[in-house]
Design a protein around this nucleic acid. Structure first.
Length: 519
RNA sequence: GGUCGGUUCGUAUAACGGUUAGUACUCAAGAUUCUCAAUCUUGCAAUAGGGGUUCGAUUCCCCUACCGACUACCA
């Protein structure tokens, strides 16, 4: 029987989702959609200590912004989403709300002899660990040490049963088998083997808060939610043997999901994985959306920095995956069609901010003038420009679209089309505003002022250049003098374009102004 | 320290064991233009090191080096 593809993204709400997490979610989503399967969001909030208010909402919003919407899970308001599964009672999707489910599974493992009760307190263990470390050794709670610790394996039955009743701080630990080679298969990494003798007895369930740890919750929920593939970060590879053993202990090997471990996103320079600090240090966002933490510290987001979600998704997809062709630009739909785990790269990908900008620039070029005009108008308003017609703004957009990376760049590129320059770039003025140039330029200005036809680029450009040429004046010097007057610098659009946009009156004003200002 | 994973231009990556090791970003130069941008052309630049296996290794195996993850009653 082939099962319907069901994958999950299972973030922990301990803070904002960073771009590596978004990539993991994206790969899960692409995999599911390509196979006509379900993409599920499950919130792994079994650690009450590290819970951060607002983090869950942030995660859902961030994924929504990217177009990664779940078939099942929770929405930004915290409501259950379950579009695909009238026959599956999979809710709830927050592990804290699934609390009652886990205990019996943990106890089942004890009964079958795969786990045991442990009564050592966190403090005792911490002390032991510190003691051994200072002696240069490593402490692990496992097969070599467990009989010397306080648990249902090492203590007389009456004694531990007494503790089980009277104390509320015990845990259930997995009894790691001795000297067994666990053979695993990873969809990205291939075959991996680990000897269980190097592994420790992980805590599965805690009596104190009656919650499972990641390992137990993960296996139980993946099983109950009928997950077929687990696509997650590389940090989970070391616990894969434990997970295999858990499926085996529960007798669920038949339906055990297949695993794929994704490599990490690395910092652009130096060593280590990409962290929040790198963004601040190198000046690019690490998070999809802006995030303000409890201390009021602000982390910038791709959305607020002006990235289009399509560009963000595209660049993330290409960080660790490639289609095997030379195509670099993909819509989400195209990614759904093309994506494959086989082409996911094993090694860690270093994030590159320049390439990220390039993607945005490409997407900006593809946008319609209409859409960009909508986005540009608020930017203009922020700069106090309000009385301009939409038609005028559209004309400007059409001329500057391919020169920008972000919509916010439009202002720097074209502010002179909305307000007259009041200062002139010193270097440019020194270079071009010389008497032998500007006397000619002013004559050209007169030519423009006396131009009879309608002011359009097509009408003006030819005669204007012809006029300068026929007088044998230096084209570059003359034009740049005019540009200095119109732009305030010797860079910008063609003179005919500028004059056409700002019109005859404004043109005259700017000429008078520069004459007065620069003598 | 131990376990596991990884290593192709600066970065992202391509190359069924047979290529002048390709592409994109960045950078540089040139072309074009009234300037700038855009565009086009060209260029710089890589298989970590050492052993095998093979007629032939970027590709398969081993060792070394380096990088990373994990080694919590966190996920």
């Amino acid at each position: 029987m082939t099962r319907k593809t069901r994958v999950r993204f299972a973030p922990s709400p301990t803070g904002p989702l960073h771009m590596g997490g978004v990539r993991t979610a994206l790969y899960n989503y692409l995999f599911a959609k390509q196979r006509g399967g379900d993409f599920i969001i499950r919130i792994e909030d079994t650690d009450s200590q590290r819970f951060v208010p607002g983090a869950e909402k942030y995660i859902i919003e961030a994924l929504n912004w990217c177009g990664i919407v779940p078939d099942e899970g929770v929405d930004a308001e915290g409501n259950v989403v379950e579009t695909a599964s009238e026959r599956h009672p999979h809710a709830p999707y927050r592990q804290s709300q699934r609390k009652p489910i886990y205990r019996k599974y943990a106890e089942e493992l004890v009964e079958k002899g795969f786990a045991y009760y442990a009564f050592d307190t966190a403090e005792e263990l911490g002390a032991k660990r510190a003691e051994m470390e200072s002696a240069g050794q490593t402490f692990i709670y496992g097969q070599t040490t467990r009989m010397g610790l306080r648990n249902s394996l090492s203590m007389p039955e009456a004694e531990w049963k007494e503790l089980l009743e009277t104390r509320t701080d015990w845990t259930i630990r997995f009894k790691m088998p001795e000297n067994r080679v666990v053979k695993m298969d990873d969809l990205i990494r291939g075959h991996v083997e680990v000897n269980t003798s190097t592994l420790d007895d992980k805590v599965l369930w805690k009596r104190a808060d009656e919650l499972p740890t990641y390992h137990l919750a993960n296996i139980v929920d993946d099983h109950l939610m009928e997950i077929t593939e687990v696509i997650r970060g590389e940090e989970w590879l070391p616990s894969l043997p434990l997970h295999y053993l858990l499926y085996e202990a529960f007798g669920w090997t038949e339906t055990q999901p297949r695993f794929a471990h994704l490599s990490l996103l690395l910092k652009p320079d130096g060593k280590g994985k990409l962290s929040k600090r790198d963004g601040d240090r190198l000046g690019f966002p690490v998070f999809p959306l802006r995030w303000v933490n409890a201390e009021g510290e602000v982390s910038r987001g791709y959305r607020e920095d002006g990235y289009f979600p399509e560009a963000f998704v595209n660049l993330l997809a290409m960080l660790g995956w490639n289609p095997g062709t030379e195509q670099e630009l993909f819509t989400l739909e195209e990614l759904v069609e093309t994506f494959s785990l086989e082409r996911v790269v094993k090694s860690g990908a270093r994030f590159n901010a320049d390439k990220a900008k390039w993607y945005n620039k490409e997407y900006l070029r593809k946008k319609s003038v209409e859409e960009l005009t909508d986005l540009y108008i608020p930017v203009l308003e922020e700069h106090g420009i309000t009385g301009v017609s939409r038609e005028y703004v559209s004309k400007v957009v059409a001329l500057i679209q391919e020169r920008a990376t972000f919509v916010a760049d439009f202002w720097d590129i074209a502010s002179y089309l909305f307000v007259a320059p009041v200062t002139f770039v010193e270097k440019d003025a020194a270079k071009f505003w010389k008497e032998e140039n500007y006397t000619l330029a002013l004559k050209v200005a007169d030519f423009i002022m006396n131009f009879e036809g309608e002011f359009t680029k097509e009408n003006l450009e030819g005669p204007l250049e012809e006029f300068i040429r026929s007088n044998e004046w230096p084209m570059g010097k003359v034009m740049n003098c005019l540009r200095l007057a119109l732009v305030g610098a010797s860079s910008g659009l063609g003179i005919a374009d500028i004059v056409t946009l700002i019109g005859k009156d404004e043109f005259a004003r700017r000429i008078e102004y520069i004459k007065a200002t620069l003598k």
